[in-house]
Amino acid sequence: MSRDNIILEVKHLTVGYSQKKPVVKDVSFLLKKGECLAIFGKLGSGKTTIAMAILGFIAPIYGMVLLNSINILKIRGRKRREIRRRIQPIFQDPFLSLHPMKRIKTVLEDSIERESGKSVKRYLNMVGLDASYMDRLPSQLSGGELQRVCIAKALCTNPEVLILDEPFTAQDHVTKVKLAVLLRDLKNKYNLSYLLITHDIFTVSFLSDRVLLLDQGKVTGTMTAGEFREKYIAEL
């Protein structure tokens, strides 16, 4: 595998609240440019903990997170803020991810890089929303629309990696499919890389290219999306 193509590398990541009982144990994986890597596991297997460690919200006990070969866990200050913008999270509950008193326009404007010269309208269009949403408050939007706004907000920072943490759990089935199609199209169009964290078989089989199986904080196997479909869809 060519190393030029690797955008995110996680090496021996061990995370937990005590050294004796880590929640995530020695997890390593690579994420290539334009790839969707799914971390699939049961509830409580440590999937979200990995995401939080990559995003810098939990300090790992041991390990490295390399973005374009730079260990982002070692960077401090202003540079860290800039690096952070390259990895954006999409959480499962979009309503809790947006400020209840801020209009969509303000939320997106605050995330856009000033020098990019791009407009809020452009990002809303990218996720299938029109300019009429700009002056609305989160309470005036449906769950699916809110998740689209969260995706637009993440895109505003011009990210290289999107961490999708159970992105469709709070959605109904129709919305789930529509959002999955949107994310797949965005990935193909803008060559984005996704780290998909989920326990949902549909989401994994629809979006991912490779799957990392996680159980009790340990990687128990990897497989291609085809192998995953064969194994799990057949089981269903």
């Binding site: 800039e82 913008r85 999270p89 509950d93 991810s97 969260c150």
Partner: peptide
Amino acid sequence: ESLLYKSLVAAGLSFPKVLLGY
């Protein structure tokens, strides 16, 4: 600990902006 704060920090907003604006 909220998702809102995490998404603001991830978006690289400065501390004064997060504190005063949000």
